[in-house]
Write a protein that binds this DNA or RNA. Structure first.
Lengths: 328, 328
DNA sequence: TTGTAAGCGTTATCAC
DNA sequence: GTGATAACGCTTACAA
């Protein structure tokens, strides 16, 4: 692996000149530039980014720290961030924390030590709380989950409105006994809950049961079975998370009920299966491409101007009405 | 950000001693060690890994380069690699190449420049071909896709046997007019094709049509519609990839045929939706956890002993027989 | 057991 | 326009 010294020697110049040519940072005579470029070519020299990073204390990489790599929502965002960063000549290092605060700290440190230019981060509630403690001067943007921190740039969904619209849709279509299953891990669920409550209230309805549970398929399944075993059953189930939706769907089927005739089902986030099942699932789709792209742009803005006042971008979800909540 | 100098000063020792205490590399008196540790604590010092990496020319990170982050197969492997590496004190940097050879080169370079200790890589066919050209002394392990390169460690599925078993299963259950949809992008599809051909041959059957197409939902859908519009229809469809399976499933439904009564459907890889749809899909599940773990272990072995002779680990898929291929 | 100092590959600050 | 040289923060011979 040739170093800048080798290039300098081959071109008969100093390392400083080589650096200048490569960085295009100050005037160099055409002739010298030529010689240097030839030597670079000749030796197929590639600058050592570690050394450069040590010297200038930053790099052309950004970090993306997500809580669950298996969640299609985050992988879609990953793709979007990747694309946006690539256009700017940046690389993305993606880290998976598995909702584990220890790993969050680990990876934040790794990325910091990596001298990444910035970080896009969806923190757990636990970590979000102590995020302000985590005193780092590295630019970052929070996505998906709100943190209580005035200095942070954020890209969020308008979860309250989304929850409202989804509930409103059910009510409009004639459902009245609506149960709600909400995740208990992130800040998005309570907001969606708030929206659905508002819609119910406006129609003088009461929730037909409300459950805050771990956002996993199994919990959705178990909770639904319990719900369906009661004397009086709901005529619709509202879920705040696609894993819960999957669990509910399974339970309804195992209970031999028909969707939507016996019971309607609605949820959040597009998935492959949402339109493969019968009937396809009504849901609020998040604009993942736009979330990822916006977060990346915000991050680059902050990298450019670290003292800029924080900005929060709130995007709207889109209701995709499908068979699982057809008019009764 | 305090440096090792600050710690040394605070503890009244040299930087060398601090380094020794932290690395636990040679004997230091208990008293000095104590003082150093206190200073570290006091200043909340964290060693600069960039500098360390520049100095020792390696790091405690490995790279994982996958071709499609949205494919559940790869995210599952990502999780497994992550876990295995974490246990060894290594961090994982995950990169998504989107089946784009340019990005493959970019990220391989980024990771190389990052001084990662090694790379786990699922190359495109295109890049795989020129991989041997890519002369790098960085340890790596290939997963999922075979490359024509004697020096590479690999972790692969026994795709021929898997294809054989899946076809055999259909035949056993009474299907005779079996069409096959295979991806045309990776090396896995031709191997699975080979297995299915073998099974058909053993039963004196001929493929009821064989299609090599881009492994995308849409192509699976379109191809299936064409297939179903023919005068004589197949009684089963074999797919080599979960995206194709999804497309086929959709097409069959839109064509108002019943699975498996009118037509059976089998494929590869576990997905969330595979058991949510009605009927659930029969498939060959890949041992993703084991693939990721094995690849990581192989990588660490090679890091330890770079000249060890290359090893290829071939794992078996597992047939999950479900409703979509029930006995006729 | 501990300290001194060289060096990893860059870039930036001075001189000339 | 170009070249020395210091510095980034660390590890590791080599001395003491």
């Amino acid at each position: 692996m040739p170093s800048i010294k080798d290039v300098a020697q081959a071109a008969g110049v100093s390392t400083a000149t080589v650096s200048r040519v490569l960085a295009n940072t100050s005037r160099v005579s055409d002739e010298t530039r030529q010689r240097v470029l030839e030597a670079v070519e000749q030796l197929s020299y590639r600058p050592n980014l570690i050394a450069r990073s040590l010297r200038v204390q930053k790099s052309a990489k950004i970090g993306l720290v997500v809580s669950d790599i298996r969640n299609p929502f985050f992988t879609a965002i990953g793709r979007a961030v990747e694309d946006a960063a690539y256009e700017q000549g940046y690389s993305v290092l993606m880290c998976n924390t598995d909702e584990n605060p220890e790993k969050e700290e680990l990876y934040l440190n790794v990325l910091h030590d990596e001298n990444v230019a910035g970080i896009i981060f969806s923190p757990t509630q636990k970590f979000g709380a102590k995020l302000s403690t985590f005193n780092s001067n590295i630019p970052f943007v929070i996505i998906d989950r709100v943190v209580n921190m005035k200095q942070a740039d954020m890209v969020l969904l308008d979860n309250v409105t989304a929850g409202y619209e989804l509930a409103e849709h059910l009510i409009e279509n004639g459902y009245r006994k609506i149960a709600g299953l909400f995740g208990n891990a992130s800040t998005t669920a309570p907001e969606r809950n708030q929206g659905w409550l508002k819609a119910l209230r406006e129609h003088q309805l009461k929730p037909f049961g409300e459950y805050f549970i771990p956002p996993r398929i199994k919990q959705g399944y178990d909770t639904t079975l319990a719900l369906l075993n009661q004397a009086e059953r709901p005529d619709a189930i509202f879920t705040s998370n696609s894993l819960l939706t999957a669990g509910v769907f399974q339970a309804i089927r195992d209970f031999k009920l028909m969707v939507p005739n016996d019971i309607a089902l609605v949820g959040f986030d597009e998935t492959t299966w949402g339109e493969l099942v019968d009937p396809p699932i009504t849901l609020i789709a998040q604009p993942t491409e736009e979330i990822g792209r916006t977060a990346t742009e915000l991050l680059f803005q902050r990298i450019e101007e670290p003292t800029r006042s924080p900005k929060t971008v709130i995007l709207k979800g889109k209701l995709l009405a499908r068979g699982s909540s057809a008019k009764r």
